[in-house]
Structures are given as C-alpha cells and as structure tokens.
C-alpha cells in the first residue's frame, strides 16, 4: 500500500502567500489600467494589505526554516507521557534516544490506540517518515523521562555520508520497521 507524500505545513503557507500575491497584483493591475474610485479603494485597502501579508508570510516561513536548519541537531527532553510527534504529522526530524524509553502507538479507525513498538536507549525513531517522505505512521510518546538527539531531515544526508556506520544502522532499521509497518496494513 502506498501512502500519500507528506506535505510540509510551510508549503501550504507558501502556496497561500503566492495566491495572496496574485490577488494583490491583480488588483494593482486593475487599478493602473482602470482607475476608478472603486478600483482605487479595492487596491489601497485590500490589494496592498494582501501583498504585505503575503510577503510577511514568505519571510516568516523562510526565517522559520532557517532557524530549523541552524538548530539541525539539538538535544531535547521529554517528560513521561509527553508526545514527541503524532501520527499524520509532517516528518521533519529523526530522533535518537540518549536516555529513557518511548512507545510507538497506532491509532485504529475506531480511535483506540494500539502499541506497536517500544524504543529504548540508543535506538532511534522517526526514520520511516523522513526517509519515505510520508506523514508519521505512528504516534510516539515518552514512557519515562527521556533525552533525545533531534536531527533535522535536511541534515540527514550529510550525516549519513560522513558517518557510514549510522547510515547502515538507520537504513537497516528503516527497512525492518517499514516491512513490519506494511505487514500490519
């Protein structure tokens, strides 16, 4: 079974900024070609605002992405019971557990949660979504207080190139978990 590709929430914002810009520019062209009181008010009140908002959205997205790239590898802490990510979320990061334990659960169609894996210290999770570019296939929650190394997906390629040992581990684990995941389907 093939899953739909994961769409970054930022992509939706970028599309929205593009559409807003087209709307604003359309009003600007209308105003320049046919200056009437109505096109004037439409452009000055609505067109200019949409162009400014669209630009602000674009800049915010770029800055947010930049911040994520700057913090490509960060250590994070989760309290027991805290959710790391939810099933269906955009797969932006891979996690390596430094201390503690996590549990992966799948949400059944009836809404109940089915445990599918227990992830221990030294293991990683979140690789299926990152490597396949599909939405998160399960919800991961900290069972105990947990320390993880959170790695941005954009940083994964260079990391695997410079650390071939990691690459083998991640790929092996990815293949096994993906096979198990597909069996469940």
């Amino acid at each position: 079974m093939t899953r739909a590709e994961a769409v970054h929430p930022h992509d939706k914002l970028l599309v929205a900024s593009g559409i807003l810009t087209l709307f604003g520019l359309g009003l600007a062209i209308l105003y320049v070609l046919n200056s009437t009181p109505y096109t004037m008010v439409a452009f000055l009140a609505l067109g200019q605002m949409t162009i400014v908002v669209a630009g602000a959205i674009f800049v915010a997205v770029v800055l947010w992405d930049l911040k994520n790239r700057i913090h490509a590898v960060v250590e994070k802490q989760f309290a027991a019971g805290e959710t790391v990510f939810r099933q269906g979320d955009y797969p932006d990061r891979l996690y390596l557990i430094g201390a503690g334990e996590a549990e992966a659960v799948k949400t059944a169609p009836d809404g109940s949660e089915v445990p599918v894996a227990r992830i221990k210290e030294g293991e990683f999770f979140g690789e299926i979504g990152v490597l396949s570019n599909v939405p998160r296939t399960a919800t991961v929650r900290a069972v105990t207080a947990m320390k993880v190394l959170s790695i941005h997906r954009g940083y994964l390629d260079p990391l695997m190139t410079y650390m071939p040992g990691w690459k083998d581990r991640i790929i092996d684990e990815y293949v096994q978990r993906k096979a198990r995941d597909e069996e469940r389907h």
């Binding site: 593009g18 600007a28 200056s35 096109t39 162009i51 669209a54 630009g55 674009f58």
Partner: peptide, 25 residues
C-alpha cells in the same frame, strides 16, 4: 522564484501603482 515573485517585485509594483493610480485619479 517565490522570493522574487512575492517579496521583491510586488514592492515596486505596490509603490508605483499607488503613484500612477493617484496621478490618474
């Protein structure tokens, strides 16, 4: 392309169309 289309070019369009429109008004 989005940076040029959403951030850079709309700025002069906004300013010039305001000026041109006000002149035409």
């Amino acid at each position: 392309a989005l940076f040029l289309g959403v951030c850079v070019l709309p700025l002069p369009v906004m300013l010039m169309s305001t000026a041109v429109g006000l002149e035409q008004a």
